[in-house]
């Protein structure tokens, strides 16, 4: 460790991202010592799920400039797909407790959710976003936002119309004893869902950073005309982005089916939380979204612990409004400009 590195770290610590990360880690540690490690476990599981949903949201905003209000509904589609795939599998498992499906059945359901989300994304691009993009580009952000509001209402009520409003949930994916980590018993499902989200976020990050397609996506998000000049097929990238973003939300819904049973408005809570994350962390910043996801998860868990259940919309949104007043571009920065900025 040279002296130079030290001073770089110190200056980073003084910036908004550094400060907020350090403060959240400190708060997380303090709360864990005070209330017990289960708080940390809850935070990590919720944060992993939120990271998936928020990354998809960030991707949509960054690449396509669509402020997605319907993202929670892809979460719902994922959980619904996983439910209908996993129910027959779990019946089969009951009869044949030794089959390989005991271990791998849940993965089939979760991968099914991923595919279902991607297909839903492609369909919505073909039917909804594509036509709008071809017809008009002025006032695009607001129009597409209202369009996603319509999509959200449509999907919620289609779910209610076709599948009914009751809770479609499962007891758990993986049976067996909970795993003990540092004296806390954590159910296998939670560990697996965190692992799944961690692996997917990591893969996604690598994909965006190192592959040609990922670079193309980033190029489109930076400058769409420039990307077109270099010969990137915009339509293809757009389609890919939407299906990726929706698949990310759906996989979160699928892997959390044991916590959030599928019902028409199940997506609203992840949607609110993901928007908190996106606003908090700024736009088009995947790593920022991941960090922000854990911060929002921490906020939520701590609110539930110290203020009480049901306050988990009030306190985080109040805090985020406070942050927005002082830092309108989010903690990790983005180019949002307000009236007062020159």
């Amino acid at each position: 460790m040279s002296k130079h590195n030290m001073s770089v770290t110190l200056t980073w610590l003084k910036t908004a991202p550094g400060l907020s990360i350090v403060i959240s880690i400190a708060v997380a540690v303090a709360a864990t010592i005070d209330a017990g490690p289960y708080l940390l476990v809850n935070m990590v599981v919720t944060g992993g799920m939120l990271a998936l949903v928020a990354t998809g949201l960030t991707l949509m905003l960054g690449v396509l400039n669509i402020p997605m209000f319907a993202h929670g509904e892809y979460f719902m589609i994922g959980s619904l797909t996983a439910y209908y795939i996993f129910t027959p599998i779990s019946e089969f498992i009951l009869e044949h407790p030794d089959s390989w499906l005991v271990t791998f059945g849940p993965f089939i359901a979760i991968i099914g959710a991923l595919i279902g989300g991607a297909i839903a994304g492609v369909i919505s691009e073909k039917l909804v976003f594509g036509p709008l993009r071809r017809r008009s580009t002025d006032n695009w952000v607001m129009n597409s936002f209202l369009l996603t509001v319509g999509v959200s209402v449509l999907l919620i009520n289609l779910h209610q119309l076709i599948f009914g409003a009751d809770f479609k949930g499962i007891v758990g994916y993986w049976q067996g004893m909970p795993i003990s980590i540092a004296d806390v018993y954590v159910s296998k499902d939670r560990v697996m869902s965190f692992l799944i989200s961690a692996v997917i976020v990591a893969l996604f990050y690598l994909f965006m950073t190192y592959t040609r397609t990922g670079m193309a996506i980033r190029a489109v998000s930076q400058d769409i005309t420039g990307a077109e000049i270099v010969g990137i097929d915009i339509e293809k990238i757009v389609l890919l982005t939407i299906s990726l973003a929706c698949a990310l939300a759906a996989v979160a819904g699928g892997s959390l089916l044991f916590m959030y049973p599928s019902y028409p408005t199940v997506g609203l809570e992840p949607l609110y939380m993901a928007w908190f994350v996106v606003i908090l962390s700024g736009l088009g910043n995947i790593l920022g979204a991941v960090a922000g996801a854990f911060m929002v998860a921490l906020l939520k868990v701590i609110t539930m612990e110290y203020v009480g259940a049901g306050w988990d919309f009030v306190v985080p949104s109040a805090l985020i409004m406070l942050i927005l007043i002082f830092k309108p571009s989010g903690i990790f920065g983005s180019d949002v400009r307000g009236v007062l900025d020159k």
Binding site: F145, Y272, G310, V314, P328, R337
Partner: peptide, 26 residues
């Protein structure tokens, strides 16, 4: 919301609405 534009102002008023509704519930 003065410092924010377009979609961000919309989000802010949305969060505000959520917070007010949460207060009314709690």
């Amino acid at each position: 919301s003065l410092r924010l534009r377009g979609i961000f102002a919309a989000c802010l008023s949305w969060f505000f609405g959520l917070a007010v509704m949460g207060l009314a519930i709690k």
